[in-house]
């Protein structure tokens, strides 16, 4: 178990290094100039800017300097937020994205498991038809539509009530979190529902469930221990990547609900070619994703005794 974990961690570090290198190469080959702005600057001022950001050095040297700093945990200073360190940007904004992401993923996982089990239980009956229709909607409608709709609904509800039931946008209290996290988790929940449903249907027809039933076990035990527990495995498998996807994919929701999450900085950095922020956020998110996948694998071994981690 320990050896396995260590092995996976070493693999993870190599993956992150690869991500960093690939991003660095891609970033320097994207057309466009990180120092350009609406108003052109004279060659002399441009030279000053290049020196300041170390862009006057050969790319290979820049790469080595960058990797060296990264090993020391220093992502450098943002090009656009000129006095802020990328470390500070991540430290201040990732917790916000994480809180939003945790809520969204918990909501999505709970909902997905429950609805999935329910639809499997009432297969081809009315609840199944209704929920599966909603699931199709949830999967096909992009999150910015849900975000806009969710906010509009809030405005209308508040107007109807005559007082602020839930704030329309902003961040800082429980009230601010509810709608954005639901909106953010909706797509994943729909996806997990479908996954859970098919997995549940497979389990229901399996030999061990039939055996359990013929042994005359109480329905509670069959349902919880034999069906749910086994059916939930595929859901756990995709949970790791889902967490990363939700935490990084909050850009639109953050924009619409004026939430100071990292997603905004991540996307804006790419648009503005803010080299240090692109590198910092990509490496950070990359490491986060790798870590989540390893974590899920470990949890998997714990939930499913058939899997032995070696």
């Amino acid at each position: 178990m320990l050896a396995y974990t260590l092995k996976r961690l070493v693999q993870g570090v190599i993956t992150v290094w690869f991500i960093a290198t690939a991003t660095f190469i891609a970033m320097h080959n994207v057309p466009g100039d990180p120092l350009s702005n609406d108003k052109a600057v004279s060659p002399e001022i441009r030279k000053n800017l290049e020196e300041k950001y170390g862009l006057d050095k050969p790319v290979m040297e820049q790469y080595l300097i960058y990797m060296g700093n990264m090993l020391e945990g220093d992502f450098g200073i943002s090009f656009t937020q000129q006095n802020r360190r990328v470390n500070d940007i991540i430290r201040e904004h990732f917790p916000v994205s994480a809180i939003l992401g945790i809520l969204a993923i918990v909501f999505a996982a709970l909902g997905g498991i429950l609805w999935g089990a329910l639809t499997a239980l009432y297969r081809n009956k009315l609840p199944d038809v209704i929920i599966m229709f909603l699931v199709i909607l949830g999967i096909s409608v992009p999150s910015f539509v849900f975000a806009a709709l969710g906010q509009l609904t809030l405005v209308n509800v508040n107007a109807l009530l005559g007082f602020t039931l839930l704030p329309v946008a902003g961040w800082g209290s429980v009230g601010h979190m509810i709608v954005p996290s639901l909106v953010l988790g909706l797509g994943t929940m729909a996806f997990l529902t479908r996954l859970m449903r098919s997995s549940m249907l497979e389990v229901v027809t399996s030999d061990y469930v039939r055996t359990a039933r013929s042994k005359g076990l109480p329905p509670t035990r069959i349902f919880l221990k034999h069906q749910l527990r086994n059916a939930v495995l595929p859901v756990i498998t995709v949970l790791g990547p889902s967490i990363a996807a939700i935490t990084t994919g909050g850009f639109v929701v953050e924009l619409v609900f004026a939430i100071p999450g990292l997603g905004r900085y991540f996307v804006q950095a790419v648009q503005q070619l803010d080299y240090t922020v692109i590198m910092g956020t990509t490496v950070f998110y990359g490491a986060f994703l790798v870590f989540m996948v390893i974590l899920v694998d470990l949890i998997y071994g714990w939930v499913d005794p058939r899997v032995r981690l070696e």
Binding site: P95, W171, V174, P260
Partner: peptide, 15 residues
Amino acid sequence: VLGWLSGLTGSSSGS
């Protein structure tokens, strides 16, 4: 719990 946590770190704003 998370609401309480974010109140500690972020701004409590906007009402």
